[in-house]
């Protein structure tokens, strides 16, 4: 089995896995990072959303073989130690989460958006396709605006 080396949440890792293994299962099953959630495995729900070289991506749709040498950030690596990322803090302030299952992905999507767009418009927020089956969308919008103001 080939070995792949890349960086996850600031740490170098090496994993042995078949080349076509979706990165989501490498993270969850081999590296013990269960923050990125499985919700569909086909890029539709975006519960697994994380960052690849600083950009939003869905690890269920990317093979581990494509990740060699790259930088991956999951929800576990978003905060700076105990200091929450402003998006996470905004999520607490707006009490966004219900069941919470989609929220790691929602937060990673929002953090990626705010990185390139400091003050997203409503239309730009509408473009976030992450599903929240509990329907927390209005609070997600409010939290993104709050984080945008705080950043």
């Amino acid at each position: 089995m080939p070995t792949y080396r890349f960086n996850v949440n600031g740490k170098p890792v090496a994993v042995e896995a078949p080349a076509d293994t979706p990165l989501l299962w490498v993270l969850r099953e081999r590296l013990g990072l269960t923050g990125p959630k499985y919700g569909c495995g086909v890029g539709a729900c975006r519960a697994c959303t994380s960052h690849l070289d600083g950009k939003e991506f869905q690890p269920c749709t990317v093979a581990v073989s494509e990740c060699g040498g790259r930088k991956i950030t999951t929800i576990e690596g978003l905060a700076d130690g105990d200091e929450l990322h402003p998006v996470q803090q905004a999520w607490l302030d707006e009490d966004v989460a219900q069941c919470g299952f989609c929220q790691p992905g929602q937060i990673m999507a929002a953090a990626a958006l705010l990185k390139t767009n400091k003050t997203p418009t409503d239309a730009e927020i509408d473009a976030i396709e992450n599903v929240c089956r509990c329907g927390t969308y209005c609070r997600i919008r409010d939290a993104i605006k709050r984080a945008s103001a705080a950043m």
Partner: peptide, 19 residues
């Protein structure tokens, strides 16, 4: 009042059956 488990959720620590 905010949910008591909100911090665990936003940091990815909240554990579900699948985790």
């Amino acid at each position: 009042t905010g949910r008591m488990d909100a911090r665990d959720i936003v940091t990815g620590k909240a554990e579900y059956a699948m985790d």
